[in-house]
Nucleic acid binder design. Structure first.
Length: 579
RNA sequence: GGCCUUGUGGUCAAGCGGUUAAGACGGCGCCCUCUCACGGCGCAAUCCCGGGUUCGAUUCCCGGCAAGGUCACCA
């Protein structure tokens, strides 16, 4: 068989010499030990937690070694392409502070460009042509129907499926048959002529899994599709060689095709990069666990975290704790140090599938947010609200001073202990809502707090905005005593039967009346921020409602009196209907 | 089904032949307290199973079992 002539017929024309590519994409001049890693998504536009997981590992390994992280777009399959996908990937990763040194739409050193595989067609073909000339690749004319028939046959016989050995029909086509097919214009793919046998097993060192055994490949895999574009496997070998990748961290799902890649690198005569196959993120689903799925699990999408307003650093910290088991301990000891100072190591990555734990993420988020200053929190929330918040929420930020006071209080800044009430921006906005909008609904009063109107009335009577926290609380105590509640907690605990309740209950009535909620940060400060008029109006409004109800039930004729009471408490003149 | 990988509390996990088998999240209880949050203290809960090797196995070996991955002109 004249392979040279065949190669020319299959891929006609002059191609640059193989050596010229070596010169064009020379080995990188980097310090010893520097790792070149990459992220190589296909442009589907959907970027998920698994991508981020691998991205962080690749980024850390590259940058802590003084190496390079680049972005390559694996667009060999047109069906997967979605417009704007590359932008989406870049944006998502920027949010989580993953910085590329070079790559598609990144700029940087152009030596190893282009980074879109479709733009690299010539290189792939040059090498495919070479393999044909060497007799290490051949054209295959089998149709999809033939291939699936073969698969069925193999399955029925309980043999291994695929294109190999005696099943590789086109491998042994005669020269005449090949040219006849070609003359008839039959479409063809180029397959690798595999020399391996799965009976032979080799030890292989995986940077994450450790020593594993890998069988030899015997599949005559497709390397060039009928459209002249290579398959993933072939493009991987060529690109990672010429982009001078030193370490490939990729998902565990690639482990099964490692034998193919090993053979490809061998037959091309390339030194292969080191590999680390990381486990995938799992989710508990009833009895069993499964990979996080795009359809069923919104928390897989990176977009989910941005919409909810997760703090990017918190997500990163959580990823790091999953990625490297010793990270959590390090972080505990070095809470102040930049994350980059942590010595990341592929060897510490988990070997088995990790269940994604939203509780843990939420815990980390609370802690991370509690580290922010009021100004930082202001910026974080505002950025979120501008993009995802309602109009009303955007409005909260108009009064910067008030917002800073609110945040200072709600985050417990200045106090002995920081508060940790929320995990995301959307929760935080919900939490501070009552400062900016009057409550629409009120948390239910416990049944025993039946005389709340009277408590409110007494409170408004004695309330002075100028009072400091202590004086204010003294007055609450007086209100308590006046209404039959224990002014001192100790008294109440010692003898609960003697009272209707304690100051705590009185405070609860006032808390619900002003905020709508039974649980809030310090009430006195809240009242200070709201301002006197607002406090009085809120409490009086509710008080009036209660009085009305009460009068309606007990003494319908006295309803008018309730209104007067209300007006009086606001300091308004009696009579007159308009506010 | 073949091949590959993995198996320590509910979850993430330390551990490398002898330990009361760390820690964190979650759960539960108590304390602090005007509520909540924070914080403090405490409790429950784990070495997949069966054989070896050994004075001794969670740890080493073999065999099961279970889980995950993969078997395309998708990546």
């Amino acid at each position: 068989m004249n392979y040279k002539a065949l190669a020319e017929r299959l891929l006609p024309g002059e191609y640059p010499s193989l050596e010229s590519y070596e010169e064009k994409y020379p080995p990188r001049s980097l310090p010893k030990g520097a790792e070149v890693t990459r992220l190589a998504p296909s442009p589907t536009g959907f970027i998920h937690l698994g991508n981020l997981f691998a991205a962080i590992a690749n980024e850390r390994i590259a940058h802590q070694s003084g190496g390079i992280l680049y972005l390559r777009i694996e667009d060999t399959d047109l069906k997967r392409k979605v417009d704007g996908a590359v932008e989406a990937v870049k944006n998502a990763l920027r949010y989580f502070d993953i910085k590329f040194d070079e790559g598609a739409e990144i700029g940087g050193d152009e030596t190893y460009a282009p980074w879109y595989q479709r733009q690299r067609a010539e290189i792939y073909r040059a090498f495919v042509k070479h393999l044909i000339e060497e007799g290490r690749a051949y054209p295959c004319f089998c149709t999809e129907e033939e291939l699936s028939a073969l698969r069925e046959e193999q399955t029925a016989k309980k043999e291994i499926t695929g294109y190999y050995g005696k099943y590789a029909k086109c491998r042994n086509l005669s020269e005449e048959e090949i040219y006849k097919n070609l003359d008839e214009g039959k479409p063809f793919v180029i397959r690798l002529k595999s020399m391996g046998s799965p009976e032979n097993k080799h030890k292989f060192h995986d940077e994450i899994k450790g020593d594993i055994t890998v069988p030899e490949n015997d599949q005559d895999v497709v390397i060039l599709k009928s459209d002249g574009i290579p398959t993933y496997h072939f493009a991987h070998a060529i690109d990672d060689h010429f982009m001078r990748t030193t370490l490939v961290i990729r998902g565990e799902e690639w482990l099964a095709s490692l034998p193919i890649h090993i053979e490809l690198f061998e037959t091309l005569g390339f030194e292969r990069p080191r590999y680390g196959h990381n486990c995938s993120l799992m989710k508990q689903d009833g009895e069993s666990r499964r990979k996080l799925s795009k359809r069923k699990d919104p928390e897989l999408s990176l977009e989910f975290y941005r919409k909810e307003g997760y703090f990017a650093r918190a997500v990163k910290v959580y990823m790091l704790t999953l990625l490297n088991s010793n990270f959590e301990e390090w972080y505990r000891k070095n809470p102040e140090a930049p994350l980059e100072n942590f010595k990341f190591s592929a060897g510490k990555m988990s070997k088995s599938g990790t269940l994604f734990d939203l509780d843990k993420l939420n815990d980390i988020s609370k802690n991370e947010l509690a580290l922010l200053s009021a100004e930082e929190m202001f910026d974080f929330l505002k950025t979120w609200a501008d993009e995802y918040g309602t109009d009303a929420q955007e409005g909260y930020f108009a009064d910067r001073d008030k917002m800073l006071k609110v945040l200072t209080l709600c985050m417990g800044i200045g106090g002995k202990k920081r508060r940790k009430d929320f995990t995301t921006a959307s929760q935080a906005m919900e939490f501070i809502k009552f400062f900016f909008e009057r409550p629409e609904t009120y948390e239910e009063f416990r049944a025993e707090l039946y005389d709340r109107a009277s408590v409110m009335d007494h409170f408004l009577e004695s309330y002075r905005y100028e009072d400091d926290a202590q004086a204010w609380f003294e007055k609450i105590k007086q209100v308590a005593a006046k209404n039959g509640y224990a002014a001192e907690m100790k008294d109440y605990k010692a003898n609960p039967e003697a009272y209707k309740g304690s100051v705590a209950d009185v405070a609860e009535i006032l808390r619900i009346a002003t905020t709508g909620r039974a649980n809030t940060p310090d009430l006195w400060t809240i009242m200070q921020i709201l301002g006197e008029t607002e406090v009085r109006e809120r409490i009086a409004t509710l008080m009036w409602q209660f009085s009305q109800e009460w009068y309606r039930e007990i003494e319908p004729s006295a309803e008018g009196m309730a209104r007067e009471l209300y007006r009086e408490s606001l300091g308004l003149p009696p009579k007159g209907e308009n506010k």
